[in-house]
Simulated assay, not measured.
Amino acid sequence: MTFDFSGKHALVTGAASGIGAATARRLAADGVDTLHLVDPDGDGLDALDLACTVHRHVADVSDEAFWNEFDAAEHRLDLALANAGIGSGGQIADLELAEWRKVMAVNLDGAFLTLRSALRAMKLRGGGSAVITASITGVKPVPGIGPYGVSKAGAAHLARIAAAENAAHGIRVNAIAPGGVDTAIWESSPDFRKSAAEQGREATIAAMGAMSPRGRFATADEIAGEIAFLLSDLAGNVTGTVHVTDGGYSL
């Protein structure tokens, strides 16, 4: 299925890899006019070859100064994906506050700052659509990833509140809650790195995915397709939802 984003201007954070990069490619393939891509990985942004106008912003989504400059430029925005995120592991009782705050800064503060700028721009346009990347771990409690799960639960509720606040402005806001997806975020886990060193990355991903009812992890492109649907006019009556896409993991 393809969607018609012709003439649209979009913002994607965490765009250098994974779901963000896949969504940028999907939007470009479906005719988006202009993409604003945000990620601290400038090389990753440069590697994206997209058939549309691209503005690359090498920045940390938790940096309010960057977003203030972005707002001041008065960019046109019709679509936004607040996707930037980092992983974390460890039992709550063993965590340092610095680790907790690091994850919250990117995953929750960054989502807030991204969405705030997107909403401001969309109000000037008289409408728009935004998606926040949450996680099934923000819906189903999973031990050992407290900061990540809590940040994603907060991101999901952020979407709901923003949807209620902005429906009258013609702006839809939804969250997507993926389960296991084959992206680079797994490299932040020491256990994953250990397994990948012993048996290879593909075998490790396959073994982890086999534990879900579907029997495999999703690809970033699959999740990008669902995000494109939520951003598109085909989902015009959908707002304030947390779309779970986890291959049955939460059953």
Rank of each mutant, 00 (worst) to 15 (best):
I132E: 01
G154V: 12
E96H: 14
R172C: 10
A16G: 03
D30P: 07
Y148G: 02
E69F: 00
R116P: 05
L77P: 06
A65I: 11
D221I: 11
V244G: 04
D221W: 05
S135K: 13
R56A: 04
L113I: 12
D43K: 15
N174G: 07
A22T: 08
H57T: 03
D109Y: 03
I223H: 02
E226H: 13
A155T: 13
E202C: 06
I171L: 11
S88W: 00
E99V: 15
V139W: 01
W67H: 05
N174F: 11
L95Y: 01
I176G: 09
C52L: 08
L81F: 14
T204N: 13
T204I: 10
A29E: 12
S212C: 01
G247R: 10
G127W: 11
L50V: 09
G180M: 11
G87P: 00
L158K: 12
D221E: 15
A10T: 08
G215R: 10
D41F: 08
R120Q: 03
D221M: 04
A98K: 13
D41Y: 06
M1T: 12
L48Y: 05
I19K: 06
A162N: 10
G225Y: 02
A93Y: 00
V242W: 00
A177W: 05
Y249E: 14
G90F: 02
C52V: 11
L48F: 04
V173F: 06
L11N: 05
A224T: 11
D60K: 12
T241E: 08
E202P: 08
G87D: 09
A155Q: 09
D43S: 15
H157A: 10
V238C: 05
V106F: 02
G179T: 09
A21Q: 04
R193S: 12
I185D: 00
A16C: 08
D246T: 07
A134W: 03
L113F: 09
S88I: 07
E165V: 13
V58K: 07
L77E: 03
S135V: 11
Y148N: 01
S195F: 01
V61T: 14
M122I: 08
G14C: 12
A47L: 02
P190R: 14
I171H: 03
